[in-house]
């Protein structure tokens, strides 16, 4: 099975601690997403689990067995790389068959498993092509095919969608989620895109400067962010942060309110301001409002809201949805 436990894992490059010390439990069958801004250590953490980097300290336990010193091949994990890392001189068939060949499987078994994987991934017609003859999405599927044939304890994905265009990214996101439903294998997925994290994960691990800021389900993070960082990182458009008198009114150093939790009105409300930019998407309207005495606040209403640049509007934060933070940026509950 595929449970993974990290205890006091740290990684130091020279004098610089990329990851100071991390404890984390990943349960069998979970879809875990590591998310954070670039340079937060999420890829390094994944590579430590993979065994592509040595841990400086701490232990990695896979399925109850200490794997800290094991070489990558013996950890029973599969990885899908950002650049796909397909073998350019091999056909699609040989690429997918490669891990099986390395494991010394029978020719007949290999052929059957490759054919199965190809069917699942819609690659049957492309088996004899070279990777350079494929589109980005197809290459991505070959990389996934290569990962699934070995039936690993867990899949590791390192920003697998970042080289695809927007439309394809949405499709592949669905396909990977579907794959997880079918295989029920543990997956660890690294991304900087919080939308990918929210849509795919059972459990999100938010990382910042090598430290875990919060672990939880997508909705936990959305509704109960532990601190300013998580509050600002999860959710789109970003949560508004307000300091000063308006925050003090809620007994907080900083108050946070998501754009979708601001009630808009043309007549009355708690805050008054001037519309800067109005983005009309049809389904939603995003307003960037210059609120008197507070600054720019983003508000979101569903449907259309007929205002334009320069109009005066009123905003009212939903008191149930106000997030309060102390002067250290931690949530007050």
């Amino acid at each position: 099975m595929g449970s993974i436990t990290l205890s006091k894992v740290s990684k130091v490059f020279g004098a610089h601690a990329v990851i100071p010390s991390i404890d984390l439990d990943i349960n069998n069958g979970e879809f875990v997403v590591f998310v954070g801004p670039s340079g937060c250590g999420k890829s390094t953490l994944l590579r430590l689990i993979a065994g592509l980097e040595d841990v400086s300290d701490g232990d990695i336990v896979i399925d109850g067995k200490n794997a800290t010193e094991l070489p990558p091949a013996q950890r029973g994990l599969s990885m899908v790389f950002q650049s796909y890392a397909l073998y350019p001189h091999m056909s699609v068939r040989s690429n997918i068959a490669f891990p099986l060949k390395m494991a010394g499987e029978d020719k007949a078994v290999i052929d059957k498993k490759v054919a199965d994987a190809a069917r699942v991934l819609n690659l049957t017609d492309y088996l004899d092509r070279k990777p350079r003859q494929l589109s980005g999405g197809q290459r991505q599927r070959v990389a996934i095919g290569r990962a699934i044939v070995r039936q690993p304890k867990a899949f590791l994905f390192d920003e697998p969608l970042s080289n695809l265009d927007a439309a394809l990214r949405v499709n592949m996101r669905l396909e990977i989620s579907q794959l997880h439903q079918d295989l029920k294998t543990t997956m660890i997925y690294v991304t900087h895109d919080q939308v990918e994290a929210m849509t795919m994960a059972d459990k999100i691990v938010v990382l910042n400067r090598g430290r875990i800021e919060q672990v939880g389900s997508p909705l936990e993070l959305y509704h109960k962010p532990d601190n300013l960082f998580v509050a600002g990182f999860i959710g789109s458009p970003r949560m508004n942060f307000v300091n000063g008198a308006a925050a003090a009114a809620h007994q907080a150093h900083t108050m946070g309110i998501r754009p979708e939790h601001l009630a808009l009105s043309k007549d009355s409300g708690a805050w008054q301001g001037t519309v800067g930019v109005a983005e009309h998407l049809g389904s939603d309207t995003f307003l960037h409002v210059n609120v008197d005495g507070i600054g720019t606040v983003t508000a979101r209403v569903s449907g259309d809201f007929a205002v334009t640049h320069g109009d005066r509007v009123f905003l009212t934060p939903d008191p149930q949805r106000v997030h309060r933070f102390d002067d250290k940026g931690l949530a007050i509950r």
């Binding site: 993979a50 065994g51 592509l52 070489p71 990558p72 091949a73 013996q74 994990l77 599969s78 990885m79 790389f81 950002q82 650049s83 890392a85 397909l86 073998y87 350019p88 490669f98 891990p99 390395m102 494991a103 290569r146 070995r150």
Partner: peptide, 18 residues
């Protein structure tokens, strides 16, 4: 030669000689 390809081979269970 991209380093990721060599890492992929390692993940796929290739020994150094393979």
């Amino acid at each position: 030669i991209p380093g990721e390809i060599l890492e992929a081979a390692r993940m796929d269970g290739a020994s150094l000689s393979k």
